[in-house]
């Protein structure tokens, strides 16, 4: 049973980690929290619902399409919530992301219906057994997908010119501009990237829980925000660590305490942790 909960925790942690990365990228480049992250996750999930119905039931096709949809949604959101409000006030942008989130959730309810839609089960075969626990292929795939994205992001950030732009803009956008970096375009790209991560997480969640519904992103969004804060908010490795820790801790708490407390355990840990270490786990003054 314990092994089962740890495995479940790591799988769920992959979802939290992807969302936490999304928060960290946006916060790193813009110093703003994107509270619509959960809604982008929901949109990723609905994308996969329709891709499965009309295009292909292959999980990877859904992932690719949802990543693109997420990227584009991110660009739109960035233009509306950030670019148009840049220099006005941070609070205005923040509220705009909350508004955008509510709007997207409502829009989804109107277009897709409020009821929960069922996703097909895929890759349910047992991959291997550890300590008497079955690990199914879907779990393996989720963990691998998260891993590949994380490595890909690190390569992008540290080995490419776009990555250098993102890092420079996140450190000091004014000086980055003087170096010839197109600050607006860099921020848009980073935002799109972050949103694509959220969309991918949504697809994985849709297949893992076999369901999609309009407010499915709210709780994971809040939880992974706390995971990101736990990890330091500007650090991608911190966000990953925070995401996986939250997943495992939550699932262990279900085992030890009661499943009724599942959703608040993460928040309690976050508050206590931040009282002790306000910078978060890997937080520095320095982003990424």
């Amino acid at each position: 049973m314990l092994a089962q909960q740890i495995i479940n925790g790591i799988t769920q942690g992959s979802l939290f980690a992807l969302l936490a990365i999304s928060f960290a990228i946006v916060y790193g480049t813009l110093r703003l929290v994107n509270f619509a992250t959960g809604s982008l996750y929901m949109i990723g999930a609905y994308t996969s619902f329709y891709v499965v119905r009309h295009v292909s039931s292959n999980l990877f096709v859904s992932l690719a399409i949802a990543a693109v949809v997420g990227f584009v949604m991110g660009l739109i959101l960035e233009r509306l919530a950030f670019k148009s409000l840049r220099g006005v006030s941070r609070i205005a942008s923040l509220i705009c992301t909350i508004g955008f989130s509510l709007f997207l959730n409502e829009l989804a309810a109107v277009i897709f219906g409020r009821e929960t839609r069922v996703m097909p089960s895929v890759y349910t075969g047992t991959a291997f057994r550890i300590a008497g626990t079955n690990i199914i292929w879907l779990q393996v795939i989720m963990i691998l997908v998260a891993g590949v994205i994380v490595i890909g992001l690190q390569l992008l950030l540290f080995k490419t010119k776009m990555g250098l732009s993102i890092r420079a803009v996140s450190l000091d956008y004014k000086t980055a501009g003087l170096m010839g970096i197109n600050v607006d375009r860099t921020i848009s790209f980073a935002f799109g990237l972050a949103s694509a991560c959220a969309g991918v997480a949504g697809v994985l969640a849709a297949f893992y829980y076999n369901s999609v519904f309009p407010v499915m992103g709210t709780l994971p969004g809040l939880k992974s925000f706390s995971a990101a804060v736990f990890g330091g908010l500007t650090s991608i490795p911190g966000a990953i660590l925070g995401g996986y820790l939250l997943g495992v801790i939550e699932n262990l708490a279900v085992q030890v305490i009661s499943s009724g407390y599942r959703d608040i355990v993460g928040f309690i840990i976050l508050v206590v942790f931040l009282l002790v270490r306000p910078r978060g786990l890997l937080g520095r003054k320095i982003p990424m």
Binding site: K161, L164, S165, R167, A168, L171, D172, K174, T175, A176, L178, M179, G180, I181, I286
Partner: peptide, 25 residues
Amino acid sequence: AHVPEGRKIFPELTVEENMRIGAFI
């Protein structure tokens, strides 16, 4: 080229990375 007031080098990047960022264009 504009060498701004207060230097504004990127303190977290290495000397070489700073130089290379100057050649971004």
